[in-house]
């Protein structure tokens, strides 16, 4: 069988990795977002018994390599009698790791809401829940969307790591097929393009969310093209003007 025929024969097998990759990314994101909120709120809490553990988890997961964390959960936890299936281990590590990074986005977003809003809500005697969910969060969310959409793309790329703990995602399948072929270039180029396409889709989804949130806030932004004009004068870039 020549390489092109092999490529055609293996194509469905490889493409079946796409739903697996997307599933891992989706589940991990479902873990990451609540974890990020809990860690961010814990970190911001004035109570030491809340902000110390939250800070510890954030530093722990940000301080070492995500792959090391994955291997640790996969190889070490079984020694302590906790054997997670590969998918659960992957989703847990990717979710908590990203959640630690994303908690900083949430913290920055919440801190960016002017202090007067909090004080006004307090002065009006709103309950803490009402203050957070109806006053602070709705103003902070639009600020968090652009960095969140970056996090989604990072998460998608991140999922390739789970191939190293036997989950049959896109990367795993590509590698498996490639190792049985003489010239594996077509396989890897295909998979690179699939990841790239998925990233572009996620970026578009992010812009879309941003547009919706901004529209609700009474601003309009374009789906394509950058929002802020460059501060670099045209002449410096070799254009006349």
């Amino acid at each position: 069988m020549d390489d092109f025929a092999a490529f055609q024969a293996y194509l469905p097998f490889i493409l079946k990795g796409i739903p697996v990759t997307l599933l891992v990314a989706f589940l991990a994101m479902c873990v990451a977002i609540p974890v990020a909120f809990i860690l961010a709120l814990g970190r911001m809490s004035p109570s030491r018994s809340l902000n110390m553990p939250a800070g510890f988890v954030i530093e722990l997961f940000r301080g070492s390599s995500s792959l090391v964390q994955l291997f640790w959960v996969f190889y070490v936890l079984p020694f302590f009698g906790l054997e997670l299936p590969p998918l659960a281990a992957g989703v847990f590590v990717l979710g908590v790791n990203s959640g630690s990074y994303m908690s900083e986005i949430i913290r920055a977003g919440l801190n960016a809401v002017p202090a007067g809003q909090r004080e006004a809500a307090l002065a009006l005697g709103f309950s803490p829940q009402y203050r957070f969910f109806r006053i602070i969060l709705p103003q902070a969310l639009p600020l968090m969307i652009p960095p969140f959409s970056n996090s989604m793309i990072t998460m998608l790329k991140f999922t390739s790591l789970v191939s190293l703990v036997t989950i049959q995602d896109l990367t795993f399948r590509a590698n498996m097929v490639a190792s049985s072929m003489g010239d594996s270039s077509s396989i890897y180029i295909l998979v690179i393009l699939v990841y790239f396409g998925l990233s572009l889709l996620l970026a578009l989804l992010g812009r879309f969310l941003e547009a919706i949130v901004n529209k609700r806030a009474g601003r309009s932004i374009s789906l394509f093209g950058s929002a802020n004009p460059s501060r670099i004068p045209p002449w410096a870039l070799g254009r006349s003007g």
């Binding site: 793309i153 790329k157 991140f158 999922t159 390739s160 790591l161 191939s163 190293l164 990367t171 590509a174 590698n175 490639a178 890897y188 180029i189 998979v191 690179i192 990841y195 790239f196 990233s199 572009l200 970026a203």
Partner: peptide, 11 residues
């Protein structure tokens, strides 16, 4: 930026 480092490494 849109593709995983692991795949680039394999490539």
């Amino acid at each position: 930026r849109g593709t995983p480092l692991l795949i680039q490494l394999y490539f």
